[in-house]
Design a protein around this nucleic acid. Structure first.
Length: 727
RNA sequence: GGGCAAUUAGCUCAGUUGGUUAGAGCGUUACAUUGACAUUGUAAAGGUCAGAGGUUCGAAUCCUCUAUUGCCCACCA
């Protein structure tokens, strides 16, 4: 009996059916794999997409690469785990929902109140979560859904609390007064890397505090000068040397100020007047000078970007109003010497675009420099640097090793408290002067919970181990169950844009919780740009919905188009024509199979894919050696993360060797059934990690699943070379 | 200001430690094709590998400088 297949491959008809079959097989869960007892684990934890929006084409790229890696290992007999999840993305999500509510009803979060807003956020996130799940499955992702996690579900909340409490008890988390980046619109602090800079035209004013003061200063923000406690000059500056150390009482626009003249090397003599008014409460640099020189700290601006009480007529004015008034006053008094235009960078909130106010306030911090005895008396920062330097964590491409190290070595303490409503609450309780750290309030009346929430990167920083059952799976300093089997993970695959934001934090968190690295390798993919080479973004409307591409060309074609022609760490462009050409290839593979299956009696279908059949002609010998060569090269390329070259190698074999020549021979020479089936099976196995749907659809003819081909040990690279061990 | 990429055919991109005539896909041109495949086949045209200098028997590949584009980090009051 011979098989008849459709003339052209129809992805739409087959993909959902195949995915269902895979899910029912249970093989996405490594516990169900029939493995050798000593099988090595291969773990990838999916970088959790933010629940702020549906997946875009960049996520498809991530899914295509990770599924390729995991399917390849699964076929090679590894205990392959790919664990899915989503990220609650605290501030980002709150902003999206607030914006949506405001557009629909004109109400702000303050109109709604905390409870109601959170309710709306949950409604929203359930929705996007469902869409993300659907999109992820449509890509063919072989994720173990039985282990699905969410950075804000019960298990992860427990882990976050536990982490915070442990860190607090070891003194790694502390409360401190610092200059923080404050967004007056979001009403929250921002981490340094959540601040963006926008070039703007600003006015820089040069003036004296009062007539008696000897030195002129320049500033773009006269209103902050109400809080000046010093003027700093470069110690080498001949003009000002004689004033250093002196103190002056000045009357600045009706306000009494005590100004000390200090010297600091960071002051540039040729900028402005070469003298800098020091405002410790509203500038990072000035704050540091104040620490060194023991200066008083006067808070001028409050959390609504208004002037604090106690500054006379300026009190309660907005910063801009106060600025105008001061300039006016200075003019009146004849103190204003110059008013020039200047291009500078304004700090703005990466979420809402509002101007950032550097303010001093009480916040929670993670100390990156505190030495921990159990880490060999090294700090989290030192350990994180050490593992990259020693190559215990390897970056692909390796140029990102340098970027990681540069960033790490400049790292300051990490402000983790955020004044937003949606997020992990801080397990801290206050009563008068007392502070208690714990999940539930201690005995006694009057304890008040800290109202702040945690930076979203706190929970996502724990992602490699919170998903594997930490802290329950960590007993007396020992990993058990999933945590023991799957951590550290083998590879983190993500976009290079969150190398510093996320990757670095994961390393520190893992060292604190487990004293070990979270992953052995970090593979960084590039950004998918639009056809013109521009970044895709919602505001530009040039984004692509992966589902549209899948509906038109099939998931396999989309995957292959994202994998081919792309190199690690480099951006690539989205191109419909490219997907189309991959769709054509998928169809070609289908027709190769169709030819072989429909011209071979079904009794040959059981031919082994492991044992090379007997060769009868020169062409047989040739094609088998070509296959062996292609397999060897492909596997080598995959081991070294050259996905594009791996696919090209297979493509060359499939098209130019097998289809163009050998199949033509097969039409003339007879008795090739066994070799043809052998070739087909191996071809499908090799292609499967790239294009799982079509290969599985064809393999269906053999009445087994290709998802996990049992005992596929005929992997030259893995069994003979062991090159993956050394890479 | 510091750093990192990119610059290769009309377009989009490969090119793995330097090694003969630099590759692919798309596009173009010509021809072919009703028994796996028109989502096809065969063939052709098309490149001073951004520029200059250097190292080498030999450079798209290594070094130096320059130019253009993009990105990241820092940020000057």
């Amino acid at each position: 009996m011979k098989l008849e297949l459709e003339k052209a491959y129809n992805p739409g008809e087959n993909e959902d059916k195949i995915y269902k079959k895979w899910e029912e097989s249970g093989y996405f869960n490594p516990d169900n794999l029939d493995l050798a007892p000593d099988a090595k684990s291969y773990t990838i934890i999916l970088p959790p997409p933010n629940i702020t929006a549906n997946l875009h084409i960049g996520h498809s790229c991530m899914l295509a690469i990770e599924d390729l890696l995991i399917r390849y290992r699964r076929l090679a007999g590894f205990r392959a785990l790919w664990l899915p999840g989503t990220d609650h993305a605290a501030i980002a999500t709150q902003m999206v929902v607030e914006k949506k509510i405001f557009q629909e009803t004109g109400k702000t979060r303050h109109d709604l109140g905390r409870e109601k807003l959170l309710e709306e956020i949950w409604k929203f996130l359930k929705n996007t979560q469902a869409t993300i799940l659907h999109q992820t499955k449509k890509m063919g992702s072989s994720l173990d859904w039985s282990r699905e996690a969410f950075t804000f579900d019960d298990a992860r909340q427990k882990a976050v609390n536990c982490m915070f409490i442990n860190m607090y008890r070891e003194g790694v988390i502390y409360r401190g007064e610092r200059i923080v980046n404050w967004c007056p619109h979001c009403h929250s602090t921002l981490a340094d890397d959540e601040v963006e800079y926008k070039e703007q035209k600003a006015k820089i004013y040069t003036f004296k505090y009062d007539k008696a003061f000897p030195i002129s200063i320049s500033t773009t923000r006269p209103e902050t000068k109400l809080g000046d406690t010093a003027v700093a000059v470069n110690p080498k500056d001949e003009r000002y040397k004689k004033y250093i150390g002196k103190e002056y009482k000045v009357n600045f626009c009706g306000q009494e100020l005590n100004i000390k003249i200090i010297s600091d090397w960071t002051v540039e003599s040729d900028f402005g007047t070469g003298a800098l008014g020091v405002t410790p409460a509203h500038s990072m640099v000035d704050w540091q000078m104040a620490q060194v020189n023991n200066l008083a700290i006067i808070k001028v601006i409050n959390e609504d970007a208004k002037i604090n009480p106690g500054f006379g007529k300026f009190s309660n004015l907005s910063t801009l109003e106060a600025r105008e008034l001061i300039v006016e006053e200075l003019k009146k008094q004849g103190l204003l010497e110059k008013e020039e235009e200047l291009i500078n960078n304004l700090s703005v909130c990466y979420r809402c675009g509002a101007a950032i106010e550097p303010l001093s306030s009480k916040q929670w911090f993670i100390s990156v420099d505190k030495k921990l005895e159990r880490l060999g008396n090294k700090s989290l920062k030192e350990k994180s640097i050490e593992v990259a330097e020693k190559g215990e964590i390897k970056f692909i491409p390796d140029r990102f090793n340098k970027r990681y190290l540069d960033w790490m070595s400049n790292l300051h303490d990490w402000c983790i408290s955020r004044q937003i409503w949606f997020g992990h609450s801080i397990p801290i309780w206050y009563k008068a002067e007392e502070i208690y750290c714990g999940e539930i309030a201690p005995e006694g009346e009057g304890w008040i919970k800290d109202e702040d929430t945690l930076d979203t990167w706190f929970s996502s920083g724990m992602w490699t181990f919170s998903t594997l059952g930490w802290p329950d799976n960590y007993k007396d300093g020992k990993k058990i169950n999933d945590l023991a089997r799957f951590h550290p993970t083998q590879i983190l695959e993500t976009g290079y844009e969150i190398l510093t934001l996320w990757v670095s934090r994961m390393v520190m968190m893992s060292f604190f919780a487990l004293g070990e690295i979270p992953f052995e390798k970090v593979y960084l993919h590039g950004t998918i740009l639009d056809t013109k080479g521009k970044k895709m973004s919602k505001s530009k409307g040039n984004g692509v919905d992966p589902l549209d591409a899948i509906n038109e060309y099939g998931a396999d074609a989309l995957r292959l188009s994202l994998l081919m022609g792309a190199t690690p760490g480099n951006d690539s462009r989205y191109s419909a024509e490219k997907i189309e050409s991959k769709r054509n290839f998928v169809n070609k593979l289908w027709n190769i199979s169709r030819f072989i299956l429909s011209s071979t009696d079904e009794k040959y279908f059981t031919t082994s894919y492991l044992d090379e059949p007997e060769t009868k002609t020169e062409s047989d010998k040739w094609i088998l050696s070509e296959l062996a060569g292609a397999r060897y090269a492909t596997n080598n390329y995959l081991e070294s993360f050259n996905f594009s070259l791996a696919a090209e190698e297979l493509n060359e074999f499939t098209y130019n060797k097998l289809a163009d020549w050998y199949l033509e021979f097969a039409k003339v020479e007879k008795n090739k059934e066994e070799i043809l089936i052998y070739l087909l099976k191996n071809l499908l196995i090799l292609w499967h990690p790239f294009i799982p749907f079509v290969t599985e659809t064809i393999w269906d003819s053999f009445n087994t699943t290709l998802l996990m081909v049992e005992k596929w040990t005929n992997n030259d690279v893995l069994t003979k070379n062991k090159s993956w061990l050394s890479y």
